[in-house]
C-alpha cells in the first residue's frame, strides 16, 4: 500500500481492490458475468421448456379429464389424426408463404439500405423499418382488419380506380380467397407479412452490409454479369441473413394465435389450437404436443439449411 503511495499511484479503496481481484482471476470474472444469464437461460427458460415437453408425454383421461402422469406417446399419436394433421399442414403452409413473401419484399429494401443508403437516408431507413415495432401489436392487427374489411380502405380504393372486378376475381380463388380480404387467407398472410417484415429486413441488411464492395467488383472483373454476380456472390453471402430472418418470420407465424383470431377464415391454425387445448379444453398434454411441432420443424429446417451450406460464409 505504501509502495503504491510512494510511486504516486492511486491509493487502495475497496472498489479498486475488488477490480484488482477480478483482473487477476479471469475465470472468476467470467463466472460472475455469466451466472445471472445462465441461471435465467438454464433454469427458468430451458427448465420450463423441458417441463412443457415432459407434459406432452403424458395423456389425458377421456372420461375424467384428469392428466395421467405416465409416459406415453399416445398424445403424439393424436397429432396424426386428420383434423390435427390438417391444422399442422395449414399452419406450415401459411408460415412458409409468409416467409417466402417476406424474403421477396425485404431483400430489395435491405439491399438498397446496405449498398446505397448513406447518412441521413440510412437513419431514415432504420426509423421506417423499426417504427411499426413501436406501436401495439393488437392495434396494428385491428387496423389491418379495418383496412381489409369489405367496406375498408383497400376495397374502397379498388372501387375508386374501377378495379373492383379484379379484387373479386382474386377473392374468388378457392381456398385462399373468401367473402372479403379480412376473412381470407390472403388477408391473414398480408397481416403476418406486415408484422414480421422488420425481422427479415434487419438480418438480411446486416448480412449484405458485410459483403465488401470489392467482391462485387472482382466478380464483374472476372466476367460475371450483374445477374451472375448476384447469384454466385451476393446471394450466397446474404444467405445466413436470409436464414436468420426466415427463422424469425417462420417461427413467429407458427406460434401466433392472435392474428388468425382477428383476420382470416374460421379454420384454426396451430397457435389457436394450443391456446384452446390448454385453456378451454383443459388438455395440456395435447397442447404441449402441438407446441413440440414448431420446435421439430425449425430443427429440421436449420439442419437442411446447414447442409445446403447456408452458414458457410459465417
Amino acid at each position: 500500500m505504501s509502495a503504491a503511495a510512494d510511486l504516486g499511484m492511486p491509493g487502495d479503496s475497496l472498489l479498486r481492490r475488488i477490480s484488482d481481484v477480478l483482473l487477476a482471476r479471469r475465470g472468476f470474472y467470467l463466472l460472475l458475468l455469466l451466472v445471472p444469464p445462465l441461471l435465467w437461460l438454464g433454469v427458468v427458460y430451458l427448465g420450463s421448456l423441458f417441463a412443457l415437453l415432459a407434459e406432452s408425454l403424458f395423456s389425458i383421461d377421456d372420461f375424467s379429464g384428469v392428466v395421467v402422469r405416465e409416459p406415453t406417446l399416445a398424445t403424439f399419436r393424436q397429432l396424426l389424426q386428420p383434423a390435427n394433421l390438417d391444422v399442422i399442414i395449414r399452419t406450415v403452409t401459411i408460415a412458409a408463404t409468409v416467409t417466402i413473401l417476406a424474403v421477396i419484399v425485404a431483400f430489395p429494401i435491405a439491399y438498397y439500405a446496405a449498398r446505397y443508403a448513406r447518412g441521413r437516408t440510412k437513419a431514415a431507413f432504420y426509423l421506417l423499418i423499426m417504427m411499426p415495432l413501436w406501436s401495439s401489436y393488437l392495434v396494428k392487427v385491428y387496423a389491418w382488419k379495418l383496412l381489409l374489411a369489405k367496406e375498408g380502405a383497400i376495397g374502397w380504393t379498388f372501387d375508386a380506380v374501377g378495379l373492383r372486378p379484379l379484387l373479386d376475381a382474386v377473392l374468388a380463388i378457392p381456398v385462399i380467397g373468401g367473402p372479403s380480404l379480412s376473412t381470407s387467407y390472403i388477408g391473414m398472410v398480408l397481416v403476418f407479412l406486415y408484422l414480421w417484415i422488420p425481422f427479415m429486413v434487419l438480418p438480411v441488411q446486416a448480412a449484405l452490409e458485410r459483403v465488401p464492395g470489392n467482391l462485387i467488383e472482382a466478380s464483374g472483373d472476372l466476367g460475371a454479369s450483374p445477374r451472375q454476380t448476384f447469384r454466385r456472390v451476393i446471394l450466397p453471402l446474404a444467405l445466413p441473413g436470409i436464414v436468420a430472418g426466415a427463422i424469425f418470420t417462420f417461427s413467429l407465424t407458427l406460434g401466433d394465435y392472435i392474428v388468425p383470431e382477428i383476420v382470416g377464415p374460421s379454420s384454426l391454425i396451430l397457435g389457436q389450437v394450443v391456446y384452446i387445448q390448454q385453456g378451454t379444453a383443459g388438455n395440456v398434454p395435447l397442447a404441449a404436443a402441438f407446441s413440440v411441432v414448431p420446435i421439430v420443424i425449425m430443427g429440421l429446417l436449420l439442419a437442411i439449411a446447414k447442409r445446403m451450406g447456408a452458414f458457410d460464409a459465417l
Binding site: N214, L215, A218, S219, D221, L222, R232, P236, L237
Partner: peptide, 30 residues
C-alpha cells in the same frame, strides 16, 4: 465484365464462401 482485362485487388477480394480452387475457377465457371 466485358473487358479483356483482369485485376488483382489491393486486399485481394477473394470470395470467402468458396475454397481456393473455386475462387481461381470462378472466371472460367462464369
Amino acid at each position: 465484365y466485358r473487358r479483356p482485362v483482369n485485376t488483382v485487388f489491393q486486399d485481394y477480394a477473394l470470395f470467402p464462401h468458396m475454397n481456393v480452387l473455386d475462387n481461381v475457377c470462378y472466371g472460367l465457371r462464369i
